[in-house]
Design a protein around this nucleic acid. Structure first.
Length: 930
RNA sequence: GGGUGAUUAGCUCAGUUGGUAGAGCGUUUCGUUUACACCGAAAAUGUCAGGAGUUCGAGUCUCUUAUCACCCACCA
């Protein structure tokens, strides 16, 4: 068989992914094995693969593949999130481009457009995950808006309502005028923006004086209810109790005193606009001020504003400034930078607005969720993330969660209101609703009426005598926040609210891998949901394992570009994932990402982004390139072994011994490496594990081991060494498989010699075994010796393969080293020596040191004696300085007494070693003088 | 204002019980009949941000200063 010298990633990857799928290797069903479960953080259904996903997914795939190799029942559940506001915003935009306004559509019409959109673009991202090699159980793919998950949302909503944790109320909320929905605090992004600070003077009622306020939003003066000053502000004491006149509309508003006002800000006088500012609303509450809402839902002014009706607030801002100026009431305008909240999804400037919303009480939920992490039921990685978590969940920072959204794309809130009376029913199905109405009617007939308030007038009470009809109830128009479905993910993907069979087996999941940016949105809330429902759903499992939804949380960092900016679509600074995979292969990209990603640290990815304007910039990444090169290296190691002719026995006894020695060393080193990899992966230190494997395979396995056992030109390798090399290579492929699944599978498939053997993806993770550290150490010395010889050749312009004689000063250590069967042959061959000769006399070779041992290489060409002398002198000087430090330590009684004996012993050894080295160097020096 | 992290070789970053600083890339030199130039051999490079403290010993622990990120709250 002849194999190309270039590994073809694209071809190989497609082939193997199809094969794995065909064999159904990623399928998991409950059985008697231990479960290892990961749930994918569901990406937005219409999203495309970006660097963050790639990081996330690669890590999850490494963990799940390792578990699979360890014989666990590995289950990785994929899926997508309907992403309520994000998707709806996209659909609205798409419709607008087609000339269709959302407001012209009915709810059902809009939803059918949205579903069409979802069918067209949804799931693209899942196919992209397949390109990366993600070994998800695709039969389990879930979507947060599919009927079963929808049902979970309704059930949990009803449950929380019945527990009294959900309530409806009129609150100041963040209003997105573009999407025309309320937003949670987390969906509002505050940023410093340049604006203007307008100083506007208000006349004092009945007097010939003015009071000047400063505002960044002059249009809101039309909604002013008061002017507030600080009670201790002597500048305004004379105004207490008086009234001011709002410019243009001439409304008379009181001048009030409130400690909220800052003396040193602006003019010290604050216009109070309860309808359009969070703090003003609170002031308004304290002083019983009128709430005048002048904004329509789309951000234009309504008729309560009296002027500028129908104009957008941003347009009015400029216009009113001009108009105030002509009235002489605009004193000055300053440039001003302040923080502006914008909608995460639509980028519209968010307006505070008083709206009726559903809220979830968070205090007890937050307390439980905090405890779960503080008492170690759930482990965060990196551990310091607990600080951020604590800071957010502590009592004084927790706010009730606004769960309603004025959108259509999502789960419609299962609350039904009677058209006339203040009756709210929360029902999951129409049967449920009918039953609840029937119950009420039962109550009405048996109690001779039901005392209720009127819907539009709480103070008006009636006794309902007639039967209530389902026709008189209307469902809440709103949908729930997207996170109100995703917080159920660990339960709902197993249909846990419906049937607990699967949930009992897979819950709690093993690890959650996600970015810390959604710690509050999602992670904390999943923990809350876990503790809220799992004890009722699967009590016996919870008693045994706990109620937490996952044992570990691995927080990945944010992927940033070279400038340290978070990669985002709007900045256009994200490399094209698919292009990257095409360029370097999925294995290469995985390797690149993994080597860049230490847990929790932000990842600076070195791929220059494809600039929106300059598409000629190619995606290139040194890290991925290293990964691709590594694939190619593995491939060529395979080609090497594959091409060797085979013979029964080694050519001679020396070769046989040498190969045996090399095998022994490899075996020991392998187990040392295995230990390291196990340890690192257990701690989720994947970047380090990647590096350890890379160094071992490229360095020890390829550069040393294969070079040693490589037969001479047109010679053959003996079967047992070949067998050993192949078995070792296969073990290495298993170890590397989680990181680079495709190339390892390909190589494995060529290495394996019978069809009954499993594929690499299902091979067995090697068992650990004690290893001989001393043997590895002494081999290390051999490597150093060989490198030193090569260095000498280099420095003296000697041909790499010119046979040279090596003289070895007799000492116990070298004797032991060189008497190891095969060691002598090994050195002689790879260092291209004609002879290794033991000596205890003065010799005429060129002396060099390996450790403390002295060697001489015999060659003709004379070296630059003066330069050599200088180098030796420098080295002696360095060593003497070093020795001084050691002596200082050793003569320090406290050190000798306090430091562990092991450390003291080491210092003593260092001292004797240095002394020996100096001794040898001085000898060399004197020889140069001679 | 509250909180978190970072500062280590030219670049990007590792460095978990405190015991003489590491990797990749880049650089320099040499090398191509015998797996791989997506290669091989070898070399150079650091007052571990500054200061103080604890300790026999600090990149590692404590305090402090500076710079830079980020999160939460908020900025008439």
């Amino acid at each position: 068989m002849s194999l190309s010298s270039r590994y073809n990633a694209e071809e190989t990857e497609n082939k193997w992914y199809a094969h794995w799928m065909e064999k159904n290797y990623f399928r998991s069903v409950p059985d008697e094995r231990e479960a290892y479960t990961i749930l994918i953080p569901p990406p937005n259904v219409t999203g495309v693969l970006h660097m963050g996903h790639m990081l996330n997914v690669t890590i999850q795939d490494v963990l799940i593949r390792k578990a699979r190799l360890e014989g666990k029942n590995a289950c990785w559940v994929p899926g997508t999130d309907h992403a309520s506001i994000a998707t709806e915003a996209k659909v609205v935009k798409m419709l607008r481009e087609k000339g269709i306004k959302k407001s012209d559509l009915t709810r059902d019409e809009f939803l059918s457009h949205a579903f069409q959109w979802k069918d067209k673009y949804g799931g693209i991202i899942l196919d992209q995950l397949k390109m990366l090699g993600a070994s998800c159980d695709w039969e389990r793919t879930r979507f947060t808006m599919e009927p079963a998950l929808q049902k979970s949302v309704l059930q949990s909503f009803k449950d929380l309502y019945n527990k009294g944790l959900l309530y409806r109320g009129l609150r100041m909320t963040n209003w997105d005028p573009a999407a025309q929905t309320v937003l949670s605090n987390e969906e509002v992004i505050h940023q410093q923006e340049n604006g203007k600070l307008y100083h506007i003077s208000y006349k004092i009622d009945g007097e010939d004086q003015v009071v000047t306020i400063a505002t960044t939003r002059p249009e809101t003066i039309l909604a002013d209810s008061a002017i507030a000053v600080h009670p201790d502000d002597e500048r305004y004491t004379h105004l207490h109790g008086k009234f001011a006149i709002v410019p243009m509309i001439n409304r008379r508003i009181p001048i009030i005193v409130d400690r909220y006002v800052k003396l040193d800000f602006g003019t010290g006088a604050l216009k109070v606009t309860p309808a359009h500012d969070m703090n003003d609303y609170e002031i308004g509450q304290r002083h019983n001020l009128e709430v005048i809402d002048i904004l329509n839902d789309n951000g234009t002014l309504n008729d309560r504003a009296q002027f500028y009706i129908g104009m957008d607030r941003m347009v009015v801002r400029k216009q009113i400034a001009k108009d105030l100026q002509s009235l002489g009431q605009l004193e000055k305008v300053e440039d001003y930078s302040n923080s502006v909240g914008r909608s995460e999804r639509t980028n519209a400037v968010v307006e505070p607005k008083l709206t009726q919303q559903w809220f979830l009480k968070m205090d007890s939920l937050a307390k439980t969720a905090l405890k779960a992490v503080e008492n170690g039921d759930i482990q965060f990685m990196p551990t310091h993330m607990i600080n951020m978590y604590r800071n957010w969940l502590k009592e004084e920072n927790v706010r009730d969660w606004c769960v309603s959204r004025q959108l259509w794309w999502g789960q419609q809130i299962p609350a039904y209101y009677h058209k006339k009376y203040d009756i709210t029913l929360v029902a999951t199905t129409s049967e449920d609703l009918e039953k609840q109405i029937a119950d009420l009617n039962q109550q009405i007939t048996s109690n001779e009426g039901l005392e209720v308030s009127h819907r539009n007038d709480a103070s008006r009470k009636s006794s309902v005598l007639e039967s209530l009809s389902i026709k008189d109830f209307e469902q809440d128009e709103d949908v729930v926040d997207t996170w109100f479905s995703s917080w159920l993910w660990p339960i709902s993907v197993f249909d846990g609210f419906e049937d607990q069979k699967e949930l009992s087996y897979y819950y709690p999941t093993s690890v959650l891998v996600t970015g810390w940016d959604i710690m509050f949105f999602w992670v904390a809330r999943m923990i809350m949901a876990g503790y809220e429902w799992s004890p009722d759903l699967i009590p016996s499992v919870v008693a045994k394992k706990g109620a937490f939804p996952f044992k570990d949380v691995y927080f990945t960092g944010m992927v940033r570009d070279k400038l340290g900016r978070k990669m985002s679509k709007s900045l256009g600074n994200s490399p094209d994932s698919i292009e990257l995979i095409k360029t370097y292969g999925a294995d290469g990209v995985r390797f690149g990402i993994l080597s860049a990603a230490a847990a929790g640290n932000d990842v600076i990815f070195d791929a220059p982004f494809t600039d929106k304007k300059n598409t000629s910039i190619k995606n290139e990444s040194k890290l991925c390139e290293t990964g691709r090169n590594f694939s190619n290296k593995l491939w060529n190691a395979l080609r090497l072994i594959d091409a060797w002719p085979i013979q029964d026995e080694a050519a001679n006894e020396d070769i046989a011994n040498m190969n045996q020695y090399a095998n022994l060393w490899m075996e020991q080193s392998f187990h040392k490496t295995l230990d390291q990899v196990n340890d690192l992966m257990g701690k989720y230190r994947l970047s380090e594990a990647t590096r350890v494997l890379y160094n071992f395979i490229w360095g020890d396995f390829c550069s040393w081991y294969l070079e040693i056992i490589k037969p001479d030109y047109q010679q053959a390798i003996d079967t047992s060494t070949r067998r050993f090399a192949i078995e070792l290579f296969k073990k290495l492929m298993t170890l590397l498989h989680p990181f680079m699944p495709f190339v390892t599978e390909e190589i494995w498939s060529i290495l394996k010699d019978n069809e009954s053997e499993p594929d690499c993806v299902l091979s067995s993770w090697p068992k650990t075994k004690p290893y001989d550290g001393e043997l590895i150490e002494s081999f290390q010395t051999i490597k150093q010796l060989v490198s030193s010889i090569r260095d000498l050749r280099n420095k003296n312009q000697l041909k790499p393969k010119e046979p040279l004689k090596l003289l070895v000063r007799k000492s116990k250590k070298t004797k032991r080293l060189l008497s190891t069967a095969g060691a002598m042959t090994l050195i002689q061959r790879i260092a291209f020596l004609s002879d290794i000769h033991m000596t205890d006399t003065e010799d005429d070779g060129h002396a060099f040191l390996v450790g403390t041992e002295q060697f001489f290489l015999v060659f003709e060409k004379s070296i630059d004696a003066a330069a050599e002398k200088m180098k030796i002198e420098e080295e002696i000087q360095r060593l003497e300085g070093f020795l001084k430090g050691i002596d200082k330590k050793l003569s320090n009684q406290r050190f000798v007494e306090n430091a562990p004996t092991k450390v003291v012993e080491m210092e003593k050894k260092k001292k004797t070693d240095s002394l020996a080295k100096i001794q040898v160097l001085k000898e060399n020096l004197s020889k140069l003088d001679a």
